[in-house]
Structures are given as C-alpha cells and as structure tokens.
C-alpha cells in the first residue's frame, strides 16, 4: 500500500496530521500496537522537523505485511553536519519553537530509537531526505 502526505513548513497547527492518519490506517490493518507506537513516534518527530525547519515537504509511505518504509523529503535549509544533528541535545530550532517545548534535540534520537533502519541525507540550501524502515514484529 502506498500513501503520500504533504507537510507545510512553519504550520505547527497541522503538525502531526500525517502521523495521526497513518496511525488510523495501521490500526485498520491490524498492525501490532507496539509497532504502531514505534511508527507514530518516528513519523511525528520527522513531521515536526519539516514544520520547524523546512519550507515544505512530502511524506511517502509504503506498507507491506512485513514492514513499513517511510521517506520524508523536504525543501529547506538542509543539515550541515548530520552526525552532530543526530546527537541528543543538539538543536538549531528557533527561540519560538523552543518555547513551545520543541527543539530540545531529542527528535532525531527518538526516530533512531524507534526504527530498524534510518538514513539521513542532506544538501545545504536544498533540503533533507530521511528514509526510515520499521519491521513489523509479527
């Protein structure tokens, strides 16, 4: 099964919409609740990253009986040093974003902790691509 969602940069009132819709889809597909929890945490964080940092993005999801593959491709400033961005506590979020309780440098670590495969590629000035894979437990 294939799904796509658009993400609008800067629009925090819609952050989490794709995660919420995917959660409903996975429930309907009877995916194990522990797997749904992992997918939801990983996708939500990726969605918020696009909202907080990029201009716009697209989420491309492919699901089969064994796994879910999610690609998040954004147009935005990109990431200069991906290893640094992956570190717990590192953030370049704005003051406003931090006041909302985001930007604590926990997003990418949360994604890593909840996925079986994670690849982040980025070109400064163009955008960032995040590929993640989660194997279903049953």
């Amino acid at each position: 099964m294939h799904f796509e969602f658009q993400v609008e940069g800067g629009n925090f009132s819609k952050a989490g919409t794709a995660s919420s819709q995917l959660k409903k889809i996975l429930k309907q597909l009877n995916v194990d609740s522990r797997d749904i929890k992992r997918v939801v945490v990983a996708l939500y964080e990726a969605e918020v990253n696009v909202v907080a940092h990029a201009y716009q993005g697209v989420i491309i999801i492919d699901i089969d009986t064994e796994k879910i593959r999610i690609r998040i491709e954004d147009e935005g400033p990109g990431i200069k040093d991906i290893d640094l961005a992956m570190q717990q506590g590192f953030s370049t979020a704005s003051e406003l974003v931090r006041e909302m309780g985001f930007g604590a440098g926990m997003g990418l670590p949360n994604i890593k902790n909840n996925t079986d495969e994670l690849t982040v590629t980025s070109e400064v000035g163009k955008g960032t691509n995040v590929h993640m894979l989660i194997n279903f437990s049953i």
């Binding site: 985001f102 926990m106 997003g107 902790n113």
Partner: peptide
Amino acid sequence: DLLSDVMGNAKSGEVWITLQ
C-alpha cells in the same frame, strides 16, 4: 514540558502534567 521527551518516553494510559 519538552514535547519530544513525552513523545519518546510517556506510555499509553498515562496522565501528562505540563505547562504547555
């Protein structure tokens, strides 16, 4: 009060205490 902390560590059925 950190949203990613709750996202990563809260468990279903819990009550969340915050000032956000």
